[in-house]
Amino acid sequence: MEGIVNMAVTNASAVVEFILLGFADLPNYQGFLFGIFLLIYMSILVGNGLIILITNVNSTLQTPMYFFLRHFSFLEICYTSVVFPRMFKNLLTQKRNISFLACAIQLCFFLILGGTECFLLAVMAYDRYIAICYPLNYPLIMNRKICVCLVTGSWISAIPIPIGQTFNIFSLPFCNSKSLNHVFCDIPPLLKLACGDTKVNELYSYAGAFLSAIVPFLMILLSYIKIITTIQKLPSAIGRHKAFSTCSSHLIVVSLFFGSGIISYFLPNSIKPAGVDKILSLMYSSVTPMLNPLIYSLRNKDVIVALKKLQPR
């Protein structure tokens, strides 16, 4: 992070700040949008906070699957908190400027937390793979030490690449408009503002996104190929249904998060309609984290029972 600060200071003479346009094209709806996003953010905090609470206090949820879900919910709170406070400030004050340094720091933390989410989703898929394909050895393989190592590894693995990506983006000369048609500092809109030949920087960004997102996605895909193969071999329909139901919530979350993220980062700017990055970014930075607690609770009997126990009698 110190290198990013030094880089920002070095480039401060060239670029002082950016303008996050956000929803400036809807001047009459700023208060309404503030209310909507505040409701979404509170839903994220409450929903994921409840998941953290019940997986901590309920004795029946002390398994590796809920251990990973607890950390995933904590990550979702951190992830969205990088975006929403700045968005609220812009909507309330109409002052949309963000300093070069603040933009660089926001991007770096957003990428680190996003990368961690990708790796943690891959870990959760691996957990389901072991549970279904090797049920007898599951307690031995997914012991407490291994679970802690997998979560720690997800965080550590996601740090180096985003720092390099941030250096790559903010070393570019920004000599055109300083207006970002986005709700937060992200790679696609920043690349659009850079002048000169940015092909090498774009390739570097694609490579970083590939390692942070596509590699975990391929790991998830491989895990589910093996899971589906194993499920098909189960003798009873009830057994197949039960095995698949333990994976369905995770599959929905993976589809929402990776689907919107891959389109945003890997679809060339030349064929993307104007403003589509903004819509997609809201999908993976706010809508998906809001839906995650609902997806995991509504499709999970253990979580529903644990939630009912929290209700006052």
Rank of each mutant, 00 (worst) to 15 (best):
K278P: 01
A24S: 14
G22A: 10
Q165R: 11
S59I: 12
D302G: 02
I19Y: 03
F167G: 00
R96H: 06
V253S: 10
I304L: 14
R96V: 09
Y204G: 04
I304A: 09
P173Y: 06
G259L: 00
I52P: 01
S73Y: 04
K233G: 01
I51H: 07
G35H: 02
I225M: 14
S248H: 12
P27T: 07
N28A: 13
P139N: 05
G49P: 10
R144F: 02
F210T: 12
Q165G: 01
L140R: 13
Y79S: 03
E2G: 00
V46L: 13
A104C: 05
L101A: 07
G49A: 05
S43V: 08
L75I: 05
F34M: 07
N11E: 05
I304V: 13
G35A: 12
F18P: 03
K95A: 07
L251K: 09
Q30I: 03
Q62S: 08
Y79R: 10
P268Y: 06
A243I: 06
M42A: 15
E117P: 00
L111F: 04
G49R: 07
I4L: 09
A213E: 12
P162G: 04
S212Y: 04
K95L: 09
F23Y: 14
L53K: 14
S177E: 05
L136P: 00
K89I: 12
H241K: 15
V46C: 05
L101Y: 05
M87A: 09
I263D: 02
I231P: 00
V46F: 11
M124I: 09
H182A: 15
E117A: 14
M219V: 13
I54N: 02
I279E: 07
Q94S: 13
I231L: 04
L218R: 08
A24E: 14
A213G: 11
L307V: 01
S285Y: 09
S270P: 03
V151N: 08
P189W: 06
N269Y: 10
I231R: 02
Q62D: 07
I40C: 13
V253A: 12
L61Q: 10
I228E: 12
Q30C: 01
N201S: 15
P85G: 05
P268K: 05
L33M: 11
K145I: 04
K309R: 12
S212N: 15
R86D: 09
F110S: 09
F174C: 03
N48D: 08
T63R: 13
Y41V: 06
L111G: 02
I112C: 07
G31Y: 13
S255A: 15
H241W: 11
Q106Y: 02
